[in-house]
C-alpha cells in the first residue's frame, strides 16, 4: 500500500509571496497532506485561501495551531480555546513546567522543543512517561539539521539521539516535519527520513514518522471534530423521530 506522506509543519504564511510556490513544490516532492500553523484567532479567509491552493495541487490541508504559553495555566486556557477549532494542536515548550503540562494534557497532539537552545529541550524520561500516557507525539523539525553547521549541529544531533532513544523506550510516537519556510530547504519525504538516520532512526521508523503517524493523528482528530462523534467508538448514525 502506498504511504500518505505528511508534512505537518510548513512555516509559511498565506500572505507570503512564496506561499503558492512552497505548497506546489511540497506536492511535487510527494507529500499528500500539509499543515501550516495559524494563530488561534485566525481569519477564516486565510484558511480558505490555504485550502484552495492545496486543493489545486492535490494536497490535503490540515488546520494547525502552535501554542507558546508561558505558564501551565496559560496553556490550559489556550488549549481549551483552540481544541475544537483546530485539527492539530502543537505546544512549543519553552519552559519545563509548560513541557510537563503539555505532555500530561490529552488534548495536545504534538510537543515541539526549541532546536537552537539545547538547554531548553526538556524531553527527558519523566516527560516521555507523561507523553506516552496522554498519547502526545514528539515533533522533530528537520530544518535546523539541514541549515545548521558545526558545533550547533553536533549538539542538536546529540540531543535528538538521546530524545529519540527515550521516545522509543516509552513508546512515544515521533513525527518528522520539515519546519521550513524557504523553497531551497524543502526535501522529499524520503530525504527527511534519510536525515533521521543521523540521530538513530531506522528507515522503517523514519518513514512511519513522515507518513502513518502524522496522518493517523490527523485522521483521529478529524473523527473527533466531526459533529457526529459522540465518544471513542460511538458515532451518531441517524437522528429523527423514527429512531
Amino acid at each position: 500500500m502506498r504511504r500518505t506522506f505528511c508534512d505537518l509543519h510548513l512555516r509559511v504564511k498565506t500572505k507570503d509571496p512564496a506561499f503558492k510556490q512552497v505548497i506546489t513544490k511540497t506536492s511535487s516532492l510527494g507529500f499528500r497532506m500539509v499543515a501550516v500553523p495559524f494563530v488561534s484567532d485566525f481569519h477564516r479567509e486565510e484558511y480558505c485561501e490555504f485550502q484552495t491552493v492545496c486543493k489545486a495541487v492535490d494536497l490535503d490541508s490540515v488546520l494547525r495551531v502552535d501554542l507558546r504559553p508561558r505558564s501551565p495555566d496559560e496553556l490550559i486556557q489556550q488549549v481549551r480555546r483552540v481544541r475544537r477549532k483546530f485539527e492539530i494542536v502543537c505546544v512549543i515548550c519553552d519552559t519545563k513546567e509548560v513541557a510537563r503540562q503539555a505532555a500530561k494534557d490529552r488534548r495536545v497532539d504534538l510537543l515541539n522543543f526549541p532546536a537552537l537552545d539545547y538547554r531548553r529541550r526538556f524531553f527527558d524520561r519523566p516527560e516521555a512517561e507523561l507523553a506516552c500516557n496522554s498519547s502526545a507525539a514528539l515533533e522533530v523539525d528537520m530544518k535546523p539539521l539541514i541549515a545548521l553547521e558545526g558545533p550547533a549541529k553536533i549538539r542538536l544531533l546529540s540531543a535528538l539521539r538521546r530524545e529519540i532513544a527515550i521516545a522509543r523506550e516509552f513508546g512515544v510516537p515521533i513525527v518528522l516535519s520539515s519546519g521550513v519556510s524557504e523553497l531551497m530547504l524543502l526535501r522529499n519525504p524520503r530525504g527527511l527520513a534519510a536525515l533521521a538516520f543521523l540521530f538513530g532512526m531506522n528507515e522503517c521508523c523514519a518513514l512511519n514518522a513522515v507518513s502513518d503517524i502524522p496522518s493517523g493523528i490527523v485522521k483521529c482528530n478529524r473523527l473527533k471534530l466531526d459533529p457526529k462523534f459522540v465518544a471513542p467508538g460511538i458515532r451518531l448514525i441517524r437522528e429523527g423521530n423514527d429512531c
Binding site: 539541514i146 531551497m184 530547504l185 522529499n188 524520503r190 534519510a194 536525515l195 538516520f197
Partner: peptide
C-alpha cells in the same frame, strides 16, 4: 546507502548558491 542519502539531503549550497538535491 543510508549515509549517502542523509548526506545528499544535507547539501545546501554549491558555489555559494542555494541548492536542494533529492534522491528520486
Amino acid at each position: 546507502v543510508d549515509m549517502v542519502r542523509a548526506a545528499v539531503a544535507s547539501v545546501t549550497c554549491v558555489s555559494q548558491k542555494a541548492i536542494a538535491i533529492n534522491v528520486v
